[in-house]
Amino acid sequence: MAAEMRLSLLIVLVVFPCVVFAHSWNEAHATYYGAPEGTIGGACGFEEYKQIYSPYTAALSPTLYNEAESCGACFEIVCVNTTGFCKKDGEKSVVVTATDLCPASDARCSPPHVHFDLSQPAFHLIAEHLGGDVPVKYRKVSCKRKGGAKFTITGNPNFNLVTVTNVAGGGDVETVEVKAEGDKEWKNMKRNWGEKWETSEVLSGKSLNFRVTTTEGEVVTSKHVAPESWQFGQTFEGKNV
């Protein structure tokens, strides 16, 4: 009986690996922008995926954005009550997804400043509307998503552009690889911009496998995500962390 229990526990650990993490706290400032119901899109290319990330999103200063490597990452943000504008009866913290770049033309966003331009719903959970610009503490945390990672394929037979969304765990993607049916090796895709990845490999008419590695080192392989009959403009769901 004891041996069976140990085996069952081992199986659970293998099938359901722990992906919860939280980095250490750091200091920053936060403002808000966009419509009252929230905003999405911009430098990460998530305009068509509002249902996945809204309403709690943020545009990052270039220092945090890191040339799009932070797209899709999740940050927990806490208002620091040195100005008196933190919500007294609001949430203690809010978790936001990085979906945009805060322009360096804004002095508060220019390097080396660390700044979050939050969606209005996110800002108003932790701070008063009149606060405008408040000091905060932040840390990177694991992302919780419903369903698997999604792959939207656009382009043409000689140029494939894949938008990767809904990634759990680290949330932000380090590398994307594709392997078409019949190929023996994985092919690296190149970041085009934001969370859009390109390859000139001929993929049409072949079933596709994708392998995503997050900046946290999590590797997720989604086999046979797109069937042989896939068409440009379609979105396919794979696995998640």
Score class of each variant (00 low, 15 high):
97 T>I: 14
135 P>Q: 06
182 G>H: 09
120 Q>R: 13
89 D>V: 02
93 S>P: 03
198 E>C: 06
209 N>L: 07
226 A>Q: 06
187 K>H: 09
156 N>D: 14
54 S>V: 10
87 K>P: 00
79 C>L: 11
11 I>C: 05
70 S>Y: 07
26 N>I: 02
3 A>D: 10
51 Q>G: 03
160 N>P: 00
75 F>M: 07
199 T>P: 00
232 F>C: 03
67 E>K: 13
12 V>P: 01
152 T>I: 03
220 V>T: 14
140 K>Q: 15
217 G>H: 10
185 E>G: 07
201 E>N: 13
1 M>G: 04
66 N>Q: 12
108 R>F: 04
122 A>E: 00
184 K>C: 05
52 I>V: 15
85 F>D: 08
99 T>M: 09
123 F>H: 03
125 L>G: 08
92 K>M: 13
51 Q>E: 14
154 T>F: 06
209 N>M: 13
238 G>S: 12
176 V>D: 00
113 H>D: 02
197 W>T: 02
205 G>H: 08
116 F>C: 02
18 C>A: 10
233 G>L: 13
162 V>R: 05
172 D>G: 08
202 V>T: 08
182 G>R: 07
210 F>A: 01
103 P>W: 09
222 S>F: 14
114 V>P: 05
129 H>N: 10
218 E>D: 15
223 K>Y: 13
167 V>S: 05
228 E>G: 01
2 A>S: 09
136 V>K: 11
81 N>G: 00
78 V>E: 12
9 L>H: 13
68 A>T: 05
114 V>M: 06
156 N>V: 03
220 V>I: 09
14 V>A: 14
73 A>P: 03
152 T>A: 03
224 H>E: 13
124 H>T: 14
113 H>P: 00
114 V>E: 04
40 I>K: 01
194 G>K: 09
122 A>H: 01
123 F>C: 00
210 F>M: 02
3 A>L: 15
82 T>L: 10
186 W>K: 04
65 Y>F: 15
147 G>P: 06
37 E>Q: 13
78 V>S: 05
195 E>N: 12
76 E>R: 06
108 R>Y: 07
203 L>R: 05
71 C>A: 12
179 K>G: 06
142 S>P: 04
229 S>A: 06
25 W>G: 01
35 A>G: 04
100 D>F: 07
